[in-house]
Simulated scan of single mutants.
Amino acid sequence: MTIQAVIFDWAGTTIDYGSRAPIVAFQKAFDNVGITITEAEIRQDMGLDKYTHICKIINLPAVQNDWQARFQVLPSSDDCDRIFHDFKSILLASLTDFAQLKPGMDQVISYLNEHHIAYGTTTGYDSEMLALVLPIAAKQGYQPTVNITSEQTNGIGRPAPAMLELASDKLEITNAASVMKVGDSINDILEGQNADAISVGIIDGSNLMGLSQAEFDALSAAEQAALRTKVADEYKKVGADYILQSMVELPALIDSIS
């Protein structure tokens, strides 16, 4: 099997170590209506498009209980709309602070270019969010050929295969088994599986790990090892085809498959 294309996720996979930008924005947007949400509550559905993700959060039993206690009514679709618009404003204002490429991406980009392997992205960002990230990534040498949001697939995002299939179509790849999907959340792995692509989970700096680089570096070697094992186990539970500690290992994986 020859890998013909690699489709990456963005935050937590190629940029934004620990996928911090969305977490901060989600928490601030809910805090602005007096509702406190935890990172665990946010991260369990990471990888969805952001509007769907907010609707998922707002329907969590704990959030519904807190909302009813505060406002004496359950949250409505209008509340979901309002929080999304606030979330989006917060995220747009902070995205450029979280657009640094993750360690290993320089080597991956060089490898893909040298071996003439096409690459693109699917994302939970919308087009306006993506428009902020793309030029910053480009200045760092990262220029995916295609970038697919759920706006291009009639609102169908992960874990459905629609975005990944569209990315493959645009890259003129007809054999799904020759496409590799690389991500950092459970929904990334499921997206790859549902598209019949090869799914790869990245451990370090991932949504599943949930720590900034400084937080991870502050852990002892034993704590780092235990956390990496925990994340790997989560990928294994959903059937990831391959699990890599970091992006540095991706070129060797592609070589071994090819």
Score class of each variant (00 low, 15 high):
residue 141 G to V: 05
residue 142 Y to G: 03
residue 143 Q to E: 12
residue 144 P to F: 01
residue 146 V to Y: 06
residue 148 I to W: 00
residue 148 I to C: 02
residue 149 T to S: 13
residue 149 T to M: 12
residue 150 S to L: 05
residue 150 S to A: 15
residue 151 E to T: 09
residue 154 N to M: 14
residue 155 G to A: 13
residue 155 G to N: 11
residue 155 G to T: 03
residue 156 I to T: 13
residue 157 G to Q: 09
residue 157 G to W: 00
residue 157 G to V: 14
residue 160 A to T: 00
residue 161 P to K: 01
residue 162 A to Y: 03
residue 162 A to Q: 06
residue 162 A to W: 01
residue 163 M to I: 04
residue 164 L to V: 05
residue 165 E to I: 04
residue 167 A to Q: 07
residue 169 D to N: 13
residue 170 K to H: 15
residue 171 L to Q: 11
residue 172 E to C: 13
residue 173 I to E: 12
residue 174 T to G: 09
residue 175 N to H: 12
residue 177 A to I: 07
residue 180 M to H: 00
residue 180 M to E: 00
residue 181 K to Q: 01
residue 182 V to N: 08
residue 183 G to F: 14
residue 184 D to L: 11
residue 184 D to C: 11
residue 184 D to Y: 04
residue 184 D to I: 08
residue 185 S to Q: 14
residue 188 D to V: 03
residue 188 D to N: 13
residue 188 D to L: 12
residue 189 I to M: 14
residue 190 L to P: 07
residue 190 L to N: 09
residue 191 E to I: 00
residue 191 E to A: 03
residue 191 E to M: 05
residue 192 G to A: 08
residue 195 A to C: 09
residue 195 A to H: 05
residue 197 A to W: 07
residue 198 I to Y: 10
residue 200 V to T: 09
residue 201 G to P: 11
residue 204 D to V: 06
residue 204 D to Q: 13
residue 204 D to E: 14
residue 204 D to M: 10
residue 204 D to Y: 13
residue 205 G to Y: 10
residue 205 G to T: 08
residue 206 S to K: 10
residue 207 N to V: 14
residue 207 N to Q: 08
residue 210 G to N: 10
residue 212 S to L: 02
residue 214 A to C: 01
residue 215 E to A: 12
residue 219 L to V: 04
residue 219 L to Y: 04
residue 222 A to M: 14
residue 225 A to I: 05
residue 226 A to M: 13
residue 226 A to E: 08
residue 228 R to Q: 06
residue 228 R to T: 01
residue 228 R to M: 02
residue 230 K to L: 08
residue 232 A to S: 07
residue 235 Y to A: 12
residue 235 Y to I: 13
residue 235 Y to G: 12
residue 236 K to E: 07
residue 237 K to H: 13
residue 237 K to C: 14
residue 238 V to N: 11
residue 238 V to T: 15
residue 239 G to N: 11
residue 242 Y to F: 15
residue 244 L to Y: 04
residue 245 Q to N: 15
residue 246 S to Y: 10
residue 246 S to N: 15
residue 247 M to K: 02
residue 248 V to G: 00
residue 250 L to T: 02
residue 251 P to Q: 06
residue 253 L to R: 00
residue 253 L to C: 00
residue 255 D to A: 09
residue 255 D to S: 08
residue 255 D to N: 14
